[in-house]
């Protein structure tokens, strides 16, 4: 596998998914497995930390699009934190800031989940 890594942590009732490296059509399949697992385990509060993500293409964004409604139907959400400017630029091109919450720091996003 090329430069791509996913790390899963739990903070309170929030699942923190840390994605590092490159998220393109080659690596999205791997990320989908993690999201399938979260849904299977009924873990619907998902915070995606992208501080170490260096590149994303639309294939990567497609994963977040495919799962967010399932999370929201179960009173959860997918929120994003700590994106590099070049990565946020791609989310912005597709209008994600209108449909998802983005935070500068992971703590802010966590607080939002906990306080509701």
């Amino acid at each position: 596998m090329q430069d791509f890594k996913v790390e899963l942590l739990q903070k309170d009732n929030v699942q923190v998914v840390k994605i590092a490296g490159i998220l393109d059509a080659h690596t999205t399949g791997e990320l989908e497995k993690y999201f399938d697992k979260l849904v299977f385990e009924k873990k619907y509060h998902v915070l995606v930390n992208l501080t170490e993500l260096n590149y994303i293409s639309s294939a990567g964004l497609g994963v977040f699009m495919a799962y967010v409604e399932t999370m929201r139907e179960n009173n959860g959400d997918i929120k994003f934190a700590e994106l590099q400017d070049k990565v946020f630029h791609v989310f912005d091109l597709l209008g994600f800031p209108m449909l998802y919450e983005f935070y500068k720091k992971e703590d802010e996003a966590l607080k939002k989940f906990i306080e509701g």
């Binding site: 639309s58 964004l61 497609g62 994963v63 699009m65 799962y67 409604e69 597709l94 994600f96 209108m98």
Partner: peptide
């Protein structure tokens, strides 16, 4: 052009790459 809000509800994605190319 993809309707992103509709894609979310339908839990699918498609046409995103072409839309990015057209913008850039």
């Amino acid at each position: 052009k993809p309707n992103i809000a509709k894609h979310l509800v339908e839990k699918k994605a498609g046409g995103l790459g072409v839309y990015i190319i057209k913008q850039l």
